[in-house]
Write a protein that binds this DNA or RNA. Sequence first.
DNA 1: AACTAATAATTGACCAGTCATCTATTAGAT
DNA 2: ATCTAATAGATGACTGGTCAATTATTAGTT
Lengths: 197, 197
Amino acid sequence: MKTIKGEQKFHELLEKGMEVMWSKGYNATSVNDIVQAAGVPKGSFYFYFDSKEDFAVKALECYFQQHFDPAKKILDDSSKSPKQRLREFYEFRTSILKNELDCKMGCLACNLGNEMAEHNEKIRQAIVTKETYIKDEIAKVVKEAQACGEMDSHMDALDIVSFFEDAGKGAMTSMKELNSAYPIDNYMQMLNKFMLV
Amino acid sequence: MKTIKGEQKFHELLEKGMEVMWSKGYNATSVNDIVQAAGVPKGSFYFYFDSKEDFAVKALECYFQQHFDPAKKILDDSSKSPKQRLREFYEFRTSILKNELDCKMGCLACNLGNEMAEHNEKIRQAIVTKETYIKDEIAKVVKEAQACGEMDSHMDALDIVSFFEDAGKGAMTSMKELNSAYPIDNYMQMLNKFMLV
DNA sequence: AACTAATAATTGACCAGTCATCTATTAGAT
DNA sequence: ATCTAATAGATGACTGGTCAATTATTAGTT
């Protein structure tokens, strides 16, 4: 992957293929599906990726980079109060699920985690590592909120964040099952109640 | 399916095959996997089931019957207070996830829902119908608890139950990803905090 | 004999991954 | 500048194997 054109094809495969796997899952997505989505010949796939498993891991890394990094900027915006940042952070994420993704796609990492964690260690690790990092980043802001009295200090910040994140994961599953925004809206409503001092 | 032996084989396929699909998911489970797990010849599968899809729907019905019906008895035990029943109900379900299933399997319906809801309407419907019924049954007890002042009456019972169920779903996903009981334990801890008047 | 239940064998489509062969690009030597 | 050689990328045919589903046949019962 030394040339510009090569770099382009690599990213084309990653992004178009990621979307297919995001929607259909790991086992239902064939390498043919991926190369067709990217408009790249079958043989080229194995020039850029060792295997379908390798593709999934790299797609996950790409996914987190594309979808968490923008949200992290909200968390880090020190011009706002910690609680306000948390609110906007969760509002931002849920609005994408509802509007951009039409309550259909959920989260690539949750989807692959649910399907593959028990059976593929590399994919499991790729997900756990990133999700742990994300929870830590959110927990930092929760701790700030606790320190300045915006949130209840009697609960462990990481426990709260873990619960929030898990509830969000489940809400996405229900959202897909019901094909409705209700689970996400209800999640936000409960989150706001839970976050009040 | 007129003979006793036939009935036995049908249930053997359902129960053994259900476990395989529960663990591996829909797409990673082949009809061969199912018949091998049940010790039944390949050809017999299509005598008892129209298709793999038909098998999944029937397996889901069997799953809910086997796993929700015992828990429902706890909900209906009028000798205890509503809130006590809710506590025991959730405690019962989470203890199965931890002890019986070793934090590995999660819930068949959630697994298939996550993997298939977007792409298979029959499977989606089978899951949604049953989960709606279950939420209604739990909500009845929450309403009782609200009526006798054991729980906060300012929130809609179905919203609360939906949130509880979704949080549980997400906790199961994380449980599988982390291969740890922490998400479930944390879920129960938060549930108890949330349920206090 | 006539019917139902059970099953082994088979089918054609599709799978992940390989490979030989091709072209395009770059680097070094003169 | 030009030639040479090496590297990087591109490509579709192909492989061994597995898939869901069908079919032809056999066994069992009435």
